[in-house]
Amino acid sequence: MRHVYRWLRRLVWLLFIGVAVLAAYALMRGRPQDLPWTPLDLAQPPGLFTGRKLAALTQQPEQCRALLDRAGIAYTALGPQGSGQCVHNDTVRLKAVAGAVALSPSSAPSCPVVAALKLWEWNVVQPAAQRLFRSQVKRIEHFGSFSCRRMYGRSRGDFSEHATADAIDISGFVLADGRRVRVLRDWKGQGKDAQFLHEVRDGACGLFSTVLSPDYNAAHADHLHLDQAERGAMGWRACR
C-alpha cells in the first residue's frame, strides 16, 4: 500500500507541475486560449483547447449564442426542430451581411457548428485563399446540415450527427475573383486548388470533432464532412 500511495503522490505532483508549466507557457505567449479552463472567445485565434470548448457547446445553446453575439456574428436563432430522435433546439441561420461569407439561406446548422465554421473561415479558409489565390472566399458551398437519418443512410445503427444539425457537408468554395474550387473535381489535383482543399481540411481538424474528406472513403469523395459530436469535448477527435 505504501508503494501505491507513493506512486499516486508522485503522479499528482507530476500533473500539478504539468499544469503549472502549461499555464506559464500560455501566459508568457499571451495566449490564454491555450489553457483548458479559460472561456472560449471567438475573437481570439484558436488555441490548444478551442476544439474541445466548441464541442462542449452542444450542451450549452444559450452560451453558444452569447459567443456569437460577442463576436458580432449576425444570425437568427430558430426554435425546436425535428422530432423523435432528431429533435434539436440549438440551430441558427446566419444572416446575409455585406462583406461576409455566404452560406445557403436554407442552411441552419447547430450553433456549435456555426461557431466553428466562423473560426475556420477567419483563421484557416481566408488566410489560405489569400496566400494561394490572392483573393478572398465569398461563398462556401455545401450539401446541407440537417438530415434525420442514421449514419450512411442505414436502417440500423447510430444516428448521424446530421440528425441534430451538428454537421455540415462542404462541397466547395467560390472566390471573389470568380474562381470556384470543388472537392469532387479538385481534391486529387496537383495545383493550388488541391493544395487549398487539403489545407482547409487539415485546419478544420482542430476545430471540429470529426473531419472526413475524400481520403476517408468513397462516400466523401465530393465533400468535407465537419461535425461537432459531443465526444470532441473529451478530446476524442477524428481527422481523415
Rank of each mutant, 00 (worst) to 15 (best):
S147M: 02
V174L: 14
A165L: 11
R179P: 00
A56C: 04
R52L: 11
L67P: 10
A238K: 09
Y152V: 02
F159L: 14
P39R: 05
R154W: 01
H3Q: 13
V211Q: 03
G84R: 05
G157Q: 09
R180L: 03
K192H: 08
R201Q: 13
H220L: 10
G30T: 06
R185C: 00
S171V: 05
P214Q: 07
T210V: 14
G191K: 02
Q85V: 10
K192E: 15
V200Q: 08
G99R: 06
Q63S: 12
A100M: 07
L184F: 11
S155L: 09
R93D: 02
V19R: 05
L207G: 08
L57G: 06
A24W: 11
D193H: 12
E141R: 13
T50I: 06
A23S: 11
D222E: 11
Q33L: 02
A233Q: 15
P127K: 07
S145V: 07
L14F: 04
F143D: 13
L42G: 04
G51Q: 05
W7A: 15
A56F: 06
R185Q: 15
C64W: 12
S135Y: 08
W122S: 12
M1W: 01
D222W: 01
P32K: 02
L8T: 04
A100I: 00
Q44G: 00
S83K: 12
I17K: 01
G84Y: 06
G172T: 11
D158N: 11
G79V: 02
W120A: 01
P61H: 05
K53D: 08
G82T: 12
D215T: 11
R9F: 10
A108P: 04
E161D: 15
G172Y: 10
F49Q: 02
P36Q: 09
P112D: 09
S209D: 12
A163F: 03
G51Y: 09
T91D: 11
A204H: 09
L11I: 05
V101F: 01
L184S: 13
D41P: 02
R156N: 12
H162Y: 12
W7I: 07
L35M: 09
N123M: 01
Q130N: 06
P80V: 12
Q81V: 07
G203D: 07
Y216G: 01
L132H: 04
L27A: 13
C148Y: 03
S160T: 13
Q33I: 02
G189D: 09
Q136R: 15
R240N: 13
R70T: 14
V101I: 14
S104C: 01
G178M: 03
W120F: 03
L224C: 03
A115R: 05
L11P: 00
V211W: 07
T164F: 00
D90S: 14
D34A: 08
S83W: 04
S171D: 04
S160A: 15
H220Q: 10
A26Q: 07
A24R: 03
L175M: 11
R179E: 14
D90P: 01
R93T: 12
L15H: 03
H223G: 07
Q195P: 00
A20S: 14
A26I: 09
Q126P: 08
Q85E: 15
A43L: 15
S110Y: 02
Q190R: 12
H220G: 07
R131S: 14
L40D: 05
N89L: 00
